[in-house]
């Protein structure tokens, strides 16, 4: 019994105390960017911002790889690599399973730059490559007070290093980018029409239940007549109740086509750092 109690105490203590070298939330990770280029320090001209954004979007369309730029002021007391590594890990840039994302971080107040490379791109954008890009393309321009040049040439160097054949603007379509059909013909025929029918019935029933819960909720909040009025617009396929969060893969285009949304890729601390 004493042993058991010790275990309990150990469990409780562990749950609170061993947070020491914890990985998540040692600092506040900024929200997942909604554009390919995010400039929180006002370092870039709007022309550069627009053109690099468009370039990175076209690049993702062509190759599937997600490359983004994020400019901030400082990482505060957090070491640069810890800050960018944890942030990249939580943003999930790149596709799930392929982990083919890369992020160019610039910190204007700290005078620091880092390229974070997802697991899947470590082979084509090696640490030595990242280091060379920082040394040759970014740092000299930052020193010359030319952040626009630094970002556009740094990004261009990253893209051509990852995809040597990538020529920019009108990219060739990539075969690997074609999404597989969700349900193949064989599965449907195996499953049978009857199964599809049953699924549909189940779907309708579930939607009815959701509808009645929603109705009850609205009655509770607004009273019956208002609820009835609001429910008129509630078709059974309406899904306005659940907002979709963008990170974590498989999102079905939650927002407009111009925006960036991360695909679920993971990072392992690859890349390089520099300062100017």
């Amino acid at each position: 019994m004493v042993r058991l109690r010790l275990h309990l105490v150990a469990g409780i203590v562990l749950a609170f105390a061993v947070r020491g070298p914890a990985f998540a939330a040692d600092f506040t990770v900024p929200p997942v960017p909604t554009h390919y280029v995010t400039d929180n320090a006002g370092a870039l001209s709007s022309a550069t911002q627009t053109s690099v954004d468009a370039e990175l979007k076209a690049y993702e369309k062509a190759t599937g790889h997600q490359v983004i730029v994020w400019i901030g002021d400082t990482t505060g007391a957090v070491p640069l690599e810890t800050w960018t590594g944890d942030t990249a890990h939580q943003w999930h840039v790149g596709r799930r399973g392929k982990d083919d994302g890369a992020i160019l971080f610039l910190f204007m107040h700290d005078h620091k730059v880092r390229i974070e490379v997802g697991y899947g791109l470590e082979g084509s954008l090696t640490d030595a490559d990242s280091s060379r890009i920082i040394r040759d393309d970014i740092v000299p321009r930052m020193k010359a007070n030319d952040p626009n040049g630094a970002v556009s040439s740094g990004v261009a160097a990253m893209l051509t290093t990852i995809t040597p054949s990538y020529a920019g603007v009108t990219p060739p379509p990539a075969a690997e980018n074609v999404a597989p059909p969700i349900v193949s013909g064989a599965v449907i025929s195996m499953f049978g029409l009857f199964g599809v029918f049953m699924l549909f019935i189940a779907f309708v029933i579930v939607m009815r239940i959701i509808g009645s819960i929603r109705y009850g909720y609205l009655v509770m909040r607004k009273g019956a007549p208002a609820a009835k009025k609001e429910m008129k617009g509630f078709a059974f396929w309406d899904s306005s109740g659940g907002g979709s969060s963008s990170s974590g893969g498989s999102d079905f285009s939650s927002s407009s086509d111009d925006d960036f949304s991360s695909g679920g890729g993971d990072f392992g601390g690859g890349g390089a750092s520099g300062s100017w």
Binding site: P21, A22, F23, E81, T82, G85, H89, T126, D127, A128, S130, S131, R132, R135, G268, G269, G270, G271, A272, S273
Partner: peptide, 20 residues
């Protein structure tokens, strides 16, 4: 310089995977 970049990258990966 290449070696140094690789070594630094590897040290960073080690710290990262250890935390994970």
């Amino acid at each position: 310089q290449t070696l140094q970049a690789q070594l630094e990258g590897t040290e960073n990966r080690i710290a990262f995977e250890r935390r994970k």
